[in-house]
Amino acid sequence: MAQATRQASAEGGKHTPVGTIHVVDPNALNWLFITWNTMEEPVRTTPDGRLVGAAMEESRWINETTLEVVLRRGITFQDGEQFDVRSFKRAFYEVQRWRAPHPPGTSLNFHPDTRLEVIDDYTVRMIFPEPDGAILGKFRGFHLASTRFWDEIGFGYKKLGTGEGHW
């Protein structure tokens, strides 16, 4: 029986999603690729691997140890919750709970004594005890999620009781 098919279009830069693909990905990092396809981070990478802003619109160093992060407006999580500084703050406290949250290793950790200072709904400052030149790369592994994600699933929290090695 014939079905009507949706036509692809790109009006005003918006694409109407059409089609299905089947993927076989034996890469051991498949779990990470799926995370990057489905979760938001402050930064993402371009096809040639360069970091660009994603949920973070821009950042600048206020002084040697303070990074001001301006968050993007107009982001909605898949469950309808609006993204703002509260989302960033929640993700920060969730990741800081663990000693080794990231499977690739602790080089992605923020310093345990890092503090946040909220400026407004879309601006937050990260205050480090020492300069962190790797912070933008660390943002690649800083997954931002809605309240429901943290409350109901988390990175293995409910199932495993810990977020160590599961971020």
């Binding site: 692809a8 694409h15 999603p17 089609g19 299905t20 693909i21 089947h22 498949n30």
Partner: peptide, 9 residues
Amino acid sequence: PRLEKVIFR
């Protein structure tokens, strides 16, 4: 997204 669905097999 430009795809409606991605299925990892």
